[in-house]
């Protein structure tokens, strides 16, 4: 009997100690939960929000941005224009590899400063081959090097997008104008899409992006360049907060050689249509069957 009660006392003591140790081990989570509001936690999927609910979400996100960064931003939710289908083409004959496009993307899309993130990677390759294994992205010399050519790669907004197919929670999908978007407030961060993408077009927010207040671009889109939360995927959206309002992508405006052509594939008078009909055009990794909306071409 004595032995039994001693045993019970030890069990109770052990359980108490164990619980205390467990609580202590989980302590870092308190800091994390402070960052998650109840509205944010319960927020519905983008496609399930009606216009009024969306308005509330946008205002809440603006308030949260102000609270955290002290900057007044305007977050909008521009929708696709009916009948418009975006396409992008890049002239490999004149790209000089200056990476101005990557830099413009970095600034426009409120990327994390420390990692120097951008949705565009520029490959430098030896003339005479397009074997990417012989290319490099970390070149560090004056450009252009005459023995080489340059190939910027970004999201190809594929019509048969592997990333959309694999997403377990439909947090990424293709919009009517062809742009593949991510709902940063619905993504669970499993990174299956990042594994599925053949173009290294997707990025993960390994930690919370850090941007000095004065460098934040205040013109933001819900599905595009608003400051992303930690732990979610992001990608190029053809700058939809600009392009759906009649402007051009930031990377195109920054290009000093005019290598980039953007427009509506449904408009027979558009420059992009002229390029596709008159130039020697190809898509990257055609064999993987992704049917990109991003084309490369050469001058005759």
């Amino acid at each position: 009997m004595d032995d039994l009660s001693r045993r019970t006392a030890m069990k109770v003591g052990g359980a108490t100690l164990g619980t205390a140790a467990f609580a202590r081990a989980l302590a870092p989570l308190t800091e994390w939960t402070e960052d998650i509001s109840m509205e944010g936690f319960l927020q519905k999927h983008y496609k399930e929000l009606d216009r009024a609910e969306m308005e509330q979400v946008l205002r809440r996100l603006e308030d949260e941005t102000y609270a955290e960064h002290g900057v007044e931003v305007s977050i909008s939710d521009p929708r696709p224009t009916p009948g418009v289908s975006f396409g992008y083409a890049l002239n490999l004959s004149i790209c000089v590899g200056c990476r101005k496009c990557a830099e413009a993307c970095h600034v426009e899309n409120n990327h994390d400063r420390a990692t120097n993130n951008s949705y565009i990677r520029v490959l430098e390759m030896k003339k005479g081959s397009i074997d990417m294994e012989l290319g490099r992205v970390d070149y560090d010399h004056p450009v252009p090097d005459d023995t080489r050519f340059y190939m910027p790669v970004q999201c190809h907004q594929c019509d048969n997008a592997p990333c959309v197919k694999v997403c377990p929670v439909e947090a990424t999908w293709k919009e009517a104008d062809g742009i593949v978007v991510v709902d940063y407030n619905w993504c669970i961060g499993c990174r299956y899409c990042e594994a599925a993408c053949p173009y290294h077009a997707r990025r993960f927010n390994w930690e919370k992006p850090e941007i000095p207040a004065e460098e934040i671009n205040p013109d933001q889109g819900y599905l595009s360049n608003r400051i992303r939360p930690q732990g979610v995927m992001e990608k190029c959206t053809f700058c939809l907060h600009r392009t759906r309002n009649g402007r051009l992508p930031a990377c195109l405006e920054a290009c000093p050689t005019g290598a980039r052509v953007f427009g509506d594939l449904n408009d027979p008078a558009s420059e992009i249509r002229w390029v596709l009909e008159n130039k020697r055009v190809f898509v990257l990794k055609e064999d993987v069957g992704t049917r990109p909306r991003f084309f490369y071409f050469f001058d005759e």
Partner: peptide, 16 residues
């Protein structure tokens, strides 16, 4: 518990 603590830190600061 060592694992739980490491996981809690990872969740708070990110998979970075």
């Amino acid at each position: 518990l060592v694992g739980v603590h490491a996981f809690a830190r990872q969740t708070a600061h990110g998979l970075a």
